[in-house]
Write a protein that binds this DNA or RNA. Structure first.
Length: 479
RNA sequence: GGCGGCAUCGCCAAGUGGUAAGGCAGGGGUCUGCAAAAUCCUUAUCCCCGGUUCAAAUCCGGGUGCCGCCUCCA
């Protein structure tokens, strides 16, 4: 694919705070790491927004002809409610609540999360791996840091010493001297510097901490940040292309990941840092710790399918906060339904063809320039709508473009027809419906309007929408 | 206190120097026995004040309001 200047892929890099031309370390090959979920509860739709953004990124890379090796971790190690060894362990807490072991909790919510990814048509990572399966890699990394003098032990825990790492906080533009330590939490007295962080815990306040492993520093468990560094380097090498996560990870998690990774290897770790903005819920971010979060299943019960939610997310740029409301979600629902109707209609009349090489070429270039401009999905969707509406090309050509664009949108537009037929079979007695539709048609031909309207009423009650046209009557499940 | 973001039509939301994308909702028309669906047309000068410029929603300064991170969190 030859690319003009403005269709080259540009991504906003948090590290430099600029949109940059994307250049892969290895030509045509991208090594991508995305931070996964902490599996002590269901993913809420705010979490899922970020995974949709990352999926779009991956699809755009694939669309541009790159091969992508994608790794995502599963945080299944218990984590504290703070970086200090205080507060409660969320995995333990949830386990107690549900009267299960922490292992059972992790497995249950990992499955739930992976199901959500499938429902959202998110291309599965090549490696979706558990932190607890990589304890050895973490220990090895900590050892390297220890050998190089970046750590110290205090009161049973191994800490990373940020004062030994020159560029600490560069990603978040932190000014350590000006930061008010302990502004919101009490200072951990064991730390030399308030921003030092734990690499390995051997001392826990929790007697019932189930997850413990042997290590050179004693039996214990790893600090939170170390898993991402260890796992990403194990699968992708010590220098890779892109690392993603939510915007909340910039100042602590990713900052610490960079410190420990680059301290260990002595070289640049990640080239591009991409962060997804939050879903805003009633004026504030949706949060797991406040019990008001919505899941994909809850939305589904309320009549909003995962694809509708995906469309909803595509309507806003990933670096902008997106305001959630049912009014807005209804918009996405109507729009998605209309899109699906359009696609089915186009496909049902696919023999209609009108070639226009110039138009097809220009609309493809336009699409590419939108998605390559830091993944501008709202504008890419506008290109899709323009394509659906145009008279410049026929249905056959439109359908081809729809399928091509949907490689990036991931809205399942290629199987939408099949899905609708399956849905219909599940929900209604298809034979009965077709008999009634036929009866109604016959009545209409005899201009027996009372009878035909009566039959239509009955169909409506069954949840069937009847559509008359010159070509005859069709029907579909009301959405 | 530090860092970061946001304020664009009723709603969601693009656009970041050259005269306001798109979707939804609303209004009007076409089609239809009626309806639905479809389709066409239609709706904003961009929070306020000041500045730079031939030209600003877009840059600069000030103000107001809102939000996020700095604590596990996408």
């Amino acid at each position: 694919m030859s690319k003009s200047k403005n269709s080259r892929l540009k991504l906003y890099n948090t590290y430099t705070r600029h949109k940059e031309d994307f250049v892969a370390i290895t030509p045509n090959f991208v090594k991508l790491y995305t931070c996964g979920l902490t599996v002590y509860n269901y993913a809420h739709i705010g979490n899922l927004r970020t995974y949709i953004f990352e999926d779009v990124l991956k699809r755009v890379l694939l669309y541009n002809g790159y091969k992508v090796k994608h790794v995502m971790n599963i945080t299944d190690v218990g984590h504290l409610t703070s970086d200090a060894d205080e507060g409660e362990d969320k995995m333990v807490l949830e386990a107690k609540k549900e009267k299960k072991t922490v292992w059972e909790i992790a497995e249950y919510y990992t499955n739930a999360f992976e199901n959500d990814l499938r429902k959202l048509n998110i291309i599965f990572p090549d490696f979706h791996v558990k932190a607890t399966d990589h304890i050895q890699q973490m220990i090895d990394l900590i050892k390297r840091l220890e050998d190089k003098g970046f750590t110290y032990s205090r009161d049973g825990n191994v800490y990373f010493n940020i004062s030994k790492f020159t560029d600490y906080g560069k990603l978040a533009k932190l000014d350590i001297d000006k930061l008010k330590a302990g502004a919101r939490i009490s200072i951990d007295e064991s730390k030399k510097n308030p921003f030092d962080f734990v690499l390995w815990f051997t001392k826990s306040k929790f007697e019932d901490q189930e997850m413990k492993w042997d290590s050179p520093w004693g039996k214990g468990y790893p600090g939170w940040h170390v898993e991402c560094s260890a796992i990403s380097m194990y699968y992708l090498g010590e220098h890779f292309d892109i690392h993603c996560g939510g915007i909340d990870h910039i100042s602590v998690h990713h900052t610490n990941e960079i410190a420990q990774s680059e301290a260990a290897t002595g070289k640049k770790w990640v080239n591009y840092w991409l962060h997804g903005e939050f879903l805003i819920f009633r004026q504030e971010k949706m949060s797991k710790s406040r019990n008001e979060f919505l899941t994909l299943d809850v939305l589904n019960e309320k009549g909003y399918s995962p694809m509708m939610y995906r469309y909803f997310c595509l309507g806003a740029h990933y670096r902008q906060p997106l305001t959630f409301s049912y009014e807005a979600l209804n918009t996405a629902k109507s729009t998605y339904n209309r899109l699906v109707n359009k696609v089915i209609e186009i496909k049902s009349n696919i023999e209609h063809s009108k070639q226009n090489i110039e138009f097809i070429k220009s609309v493809k270039i336009e699409f590419l320039s939108k998605i390559n401009n830091d993944l501008n999905m709202p504008e890419a969707l506008a290109v899709l709508w323009k394509t659906l509406r145009t008279d410049e090309i026929g249905n056959k050509e439109k359908y081809g473009l729809i399928l091509e664009f949907d490689k990036v949108f991931g809205l399942d537009l290629d199987k939408v027809e099949k899905l609708y037929i399956e849905e219909a079979k599940q929900k209604v007695d298809v034979k009965l419906v077709e008999r009634l539709v036929k009866e109604r048609d016959e009545a209409r031909n005899r201009k027996e309007w009372t009878k035909s309207d009566k039959i239509r009423m009955r169909l409506v009650e069954m949840g069937i929408e009847v559509r008359d046209s010159r070509k005859g009557t069709t029907w579909k499940i009301k959405s």
